[in-house]
Nucleic acid binder design. Sequence first.
DNA 1: TTAGGGTTAG
Length: 555
Amino acid sequence: MYGMLAGTAIPVAVSSIVSAFYQRCKSMEAFKQLHARFIILGHRHLPHSALRPIISFSSLHPTGDLHYAILILLSVPIPLISTSSSSRYLFNTVIRGFARRQKNQHNPTRQQQHSSTPLLLLLLLLRRMVDASVSPNNFTYTFLIQACAVPSAMLLGWQIHSVVTKNAFLDDRYVRNSLLQFYSICCGLDETRRLFTEFEDYADVVSWNSLINACLKRGEVSEAFVLFDRMPEKTTVSWNNMMTGLIRHKRLDTARVLFDEMPERNIVSWTVMISGYSQAGEVSEALGLFRLMQMSHRNLNSAVLVAGLAAASQLGALEHGKWIHGYIRKRQVRMERSLTTALVKMYANCGCVDLAMQVFYDDAVEKDVSTYTAAVLGLAVSGHGREAMSLFKQMKCLGIEPDGVSYIAVLCACSHMGWVEEGSHHFNEMVHVYGIEPELDHYACMVDLLGRAGHLQEAEKFITSMPVEADNVVWGALLNACRIHGNPTMGRKVGKMLIESDCGHDGRYIALSNLYSESRMEENAQQIRRIMKKRNVERIPGISSVDLNGTIYES
DNA sequence: TTAGGGTTAG
């Protein structure tokens, strides 16, 4: 039966060769080419033996094509589906593909972006299962519930919840935990809690972690702590989960207490803590932890390397960054996009734009908008405005759509080069062609661009015409421009306003006082310093760091 | 027969 090709009986041996052929296929293209050959040879359907490898690959592989898997499965004649023992497995695999895509959409930095697959197709698939009398099992329901774990699929998820209850599939802990996760994503905390209470007697460590995560995501930190203390058993994931939530709510010190207390740390624990420190600007602490981790872990994954690179990048710790790059080469760590992007940023921030571009061209096999943006920014700040702009153009030509951050890099390049017109053109392009809403950073870049080029009046006019209220960064850019171009009249107005709105910020006083000094208005400069003293504003010295043979010196 | 849940990553 399985060797049937559009009504033509073929020997079983041929069928098994076909299957072997399929199993060796490593890409969607290879599968599709073989499929085309079958069609050209006059067969309407794929041999059944080929269905499993092709459906598995196109549903589950990161480069797979879920639509194709659905089409293939829907084109199998109903009588054949009904009589085959592996049909349920095939349906489950495709539904699992849906589930996986939903998850990745939540987490876009992971693997490639799949275009979203409409829910309608999922319903079509379910309909086909019913028509062919293929009964769902606990795997089917687990995948289905996961596939519904997006707000747009809430109603379907609820329906499946009732089906699952009616058919006694809640006995399965995977089904229960998937449901809990669905509620925590699609519904409120109250509903999630209620579901948990229903299962509490059967709750395992995963259920507890899910509920705690739901609390943490909604800022209920104290409730999360109560649950964490109450849970009957904790795994490393439980501790990591708690730490992640605390860091998200700026409770870095509390997270560190947990980190020190936890009985066993894995690579995720270290990653969470290191990136927590680095994102909070406590970069030396982050690097210190990274070094400590190296003593206990020999196999570093890309996540922890990204965290280490982010810290190195902020601190300008070139040797440290180079060590990580060497590790990646030696251990042949896969050059994921997040990893190459982190490398490009690190080299650029350490002032080695050549090395950054070398990584960009030689190492970065996969590039996305962040990889390009990192390179464009690196070129821009190191004074290679022309190269930055041509790389940006190249990116657009390749069909990679720029985002808001890309335009920060572009405006920065224009600002450094004094290209007012080009900068304004790109600002408009961002808004009108790509529909990106400008943020305060974009406005600050524009003010910087106009101001540096000496168009002070225009910069001021730009600020007053902004649809949102300018913040101190935007006004600060104008003050800086006043200083560069020696305009104490406007500088005084802007500087005073800045000081009044942010009277504890030392930089505002210094900027204004420097402006006076440079305009030979020593008396006014002194006055500003006196006000500063009277208000007890300490001058915090800027810290710069230098990496000498792996030791960071701060001055 | 095969498969499934909770944590990290620009």
